[in-house]
Amino acid sequence: MTGEFMAFTVLGAIAILGALFMLQLSKVVHMVVALVFTFLSLAGLYVLLSAEFVAAVQVLIYAGAITVIMLFGIMLTKHQDEETSSNRLKKFIVFLLIIGFAISFYIGIYQLDFHQEGTDLHVNNTKQIGNLLYTRYIIPFELTSVILLVALVGAIILAKKDEEKEEKP
């Protein structure tokens, strides 16, 4: 048993437990904390895969910015923070779906056939990502930024409409 395998096992367990806690917890802030644990453990898995840039982006963007945006969204919206009684049948169905997904994922991975492994993927991976992102994938990159901007403007407009409705008697 190598150190890399032990790190993978621990980080994978943290990612899975964080995701399960996020689904099972009832308070929204606790759910976000569980999601942060999942994001950080995924960043650790990226480091194990020699994708340091992707790990840094995972920490900065997801564990940092997205989590803060979620917390602001939670704080600025009205929601019921009461515990609801959940149905056992619903939990059982979700459990069966998770087990089915895990089995299909396991079968898919072990039937996957890699013909040749890349030996130089970890060399200058940030430079390779940058070159691909700003040459071959520049149009999808820019379209993604436009879509995110439209979503932000739409969210602001929807929030203003709700605020205006509450002010009128």
Rank of each mutant, 00 (worst) to 15 (best):
I66H: 07
V29Y: 15
Q111Y: 00
V59F: 06
Q80G: 06
E4Q: 15
I99L: 13
V54Q: 05
S50N: 14
A63L: 00
V54W: 04
Q58S: 11
L23F: 03
L35D: 00
K78E: 09
E117S: 09
L45V: 01
E163R: 13
I156R: 15
L25P: 01
S86D: 13
S41M: 05
V47N: 13
L112T: 03
E4M: 09
V150K: 08
K91V: 03
A65I: 01
F5L: 13
T119D: 14
I16S: 00
D113T: 05
E166A: 13
G44V: 01
F114A: 10
G118Q: 04
A43F: 03
S26L: 11
V150M: 04
V59L: 12
T38I: 02
V146R: 04
Q58R: 02
V28L: 07
I14W: 04
L11F: 12
E4A: 08
N131W: 08
V33S: 09
G64K: 01
L89Q: 10
E164G: 01
I93C: 08
T2K: 13
I99E: 02
A151K: 08
A34I: 01
L96R: 09
G18Q: 06
R88M: 14
V47S: 12
V57W: 08
V28D: 03
L132R: 12
I98E: 09
A7Y: 05
L60F: 07
I93W: 01
L132G: 11
L97Q: 11
Y137W: 13
G73N: 05
I157A: 10
V68A: 08
H79R: 07
L25E: 03
L121G: 12
F141E: 03
V57I: 10
A7M: 11
L76K: 04
G154I: 03
I69Q: 05
A63F: 00
Q128C: 07
G118N: 03
Q116V: 11
Y46H: 05
I16P: 09
L20H: 01
F101R: 02
M22T: 12
V59W: 04
F105W: 11
G154L: 03
L158R: 09
T2F: 07
V57C: 05
V153Y: 01
E166P: 06
L121V: 10
I98R: 09
I107K: 15
G44H: 00
Q24Y: 11
G18M: 02
L152H: 08
L20D: 00
K160H: 14
Y137E: 10
D81I: 00
M1D: 14
Q116T: 10
